[in-house]
């Protein structure tokens, strides 16, 4: 709201368009959710789309929903740029967190698979010699 310092009457002039954008955001959020649920059902019933692609779509759509909630409902999209940056830039840490931790988790899974007692024979033979470094 860059024009808040103007008279209060100025705001009421925008009544109609403002409520309209609220409902527009609502329909966007609802439609995205329905698309997500629909895709999940198509996958369940017909195996539509491979799982990896489906998950990527889900995450993408989730971020779109998050954008609309933060930008429109929480009004951040209408605040001044400095405020937007102050709030959003620290959240970029999540990018590194997610990559680092999930990579770590995946590495643990591989170790569990490889080192499970008695599973692959060649690991039992080769691993003790190689695991020293």
């Amino acid at each position: 709201m860059e024009h808040t310092h103007t008279a209060a009457g100025h705001e009421s002039a925008h009544t109609d368009s403002s409520t309209k954008s609220i409902w527009r955001t609502f329909w966007i959020l609802l439609c995205i959710t329905l698309v997500e649920v629909g895709l999940a059902f198509l996958h369940l019933e017909y195996g539509f789309l491979p799982r990896v692609l489906l998950n990527a779509i889900f995450i993408g759509l989730t971020l779109v929903k998050a954008f609309y909630i933060v930008a429109e409902f929480m009004h951040l999209g209408h605040e001044i740029k400095n405020l937007i940056m102050t709030v959003l830039v620290p959240l970029l840490l999540f990018v590194w967190f997610i990559i680092a931790f999930l990579y770590e988790g995946d590495s643990w899974k591989n170790m569990r698979k490889d080192l499970r007692p008695g599973t692959p024979v060649e690991v039992q033979k080769v691993a003790p010699a190689e695991k020293h470094h």
Binding site: F94, I98, F101, L102, E104, G105, D106, S107, K109, R112
Partner: peptide, 9 residues
Amino acid sequence: IAYGTIRFS
């Protein structure tokens, strides 16, 4: 993220 890490592991 903790949930994701455990699920990945």
